[in-house]
Simulated scan of single mutants.
Amino acid sequence: DNDTHLLFAVKIFPCEEYSSWKNESQIFTDASLKHESVLQFLTAEDRESGPRKEYWIITAYHSRGNLKDYLSRHILSWMDLQKMASSLVNGVAHLHSDYTACGRPKIPIAHRDIKSSNVLVKSEWECVICDFGIALKLDPSLTADDFANSGQVGTARYMAPEVLESRVNLEDLESFKQMDVYSMALVLWEMASRCEVVGEVKSYELPFGSKVQEQPCVDTMRDIVLHGRGRPEIPCNWLVHQGMHFLCDTITECWDHDPEARLTAHCVAERINFKSRLLTPSYLLNQTNEAIL
């Protein structure tokens, strides 16, 4: 949208949430965070509001709102789904990467609260990741104690099994990325559930929506995900479409119970970007023409 570049959004933190504002500001002010699938940061400042102090983060504004609300109102075509999924995984892959797109070294970042309400819908059905209040820079100079002090975080519905069990390997920085990949898989499932190629598209539901309350607690999710090994359902009719079958296989590998068995965000991005090119009409037409020749 043309207005995207003219309008901005202000996120206001009360003084009680100073630490979250400080963390998000520090993450955002790192120039290497810039990416087309990460919310564009403009500035951070503190403001006096009467007797109370407020903390502001000012970013680009996206009128379509967050992905959760968008999916509740819209059904996606296969092309829409490909664009949205690709932009999401490209964003997560960028956060996790040791390098920027230009090849400059960067410190990887674990988001730690990936969910559909922390993803905004940009123009042309592309997504940007937002809300870095509990994100963590995976700086190799930090110790396991530093990471342990960063706290048990995230939203219970999207927590990986090892987080629910409090058995995260703090010695290995990859552990933090593996948690993000699990959460990302649930968001990809949400997108897939609203795509017209699955046949009858049901009303939008959050992951595990029919099994839990609107804001399930950690104990509830521990019973379902950890002890019951439950995951959102992938019905058989989703697998009839070749591209959707491929996406569902990828999702399943991303929410594996074993963190080390999960795909990396970089691998998922390569898979989805490659498959998107394979399934474009122009590619298929060229293949058909070559076959005829």
Rank of each mutant, 00 (worst) to 15 (best):
T4L: 07
H5S: 14
L7C: 08
A9L: 10
I12T: 10
S19P: 08
E24V: 05
S25Q: 15
S25E: 15
I27E: 07
D30G: 11
A31I: 11
A31T: 12
E36L: 13
V38S: 08
V38F: 02
F41T: 03
T43G: 10
T43K: 15
S49Q: 13
R52Y: 10
E54V: 11
I58G: 09
A60P: 00
S77C: 06
D80R: 07
Q82F: 12
Q82I: 12
M84Y: 02
N90G: 11
G91F: 03
A93F: 13
H96T: 04
H96M: 04
H96Q: 02
A101N: 07
A101D: 10
G103F: 07
R104Q: 12
P105I: 07
A110P: 00
H111P: 05
I114M: 06
L120E: 00
I129P: 03
I134L: 10
S150Y: 06
A160M: 04
A160V: 01
S175M: 00
F176L: 04
M179A: 13
L186P: 00
L186I: 04
E190C: 02
A192E: 00
V201N: 05
F208W: 03
Q213A: 15
Q213Y: 02
E214Q: 13
E214P: 01
E214Y: 08
H227Q: 08
C236Y: 08
T250F: 00
T250L: 10
W255Q: 03
D256H: 01
P259Y: 00
A261P: 01
A261I: 03
A269E: 13
A269N: 08
R271G: 08
R277F: 03
L279H: 09
T288W: 08
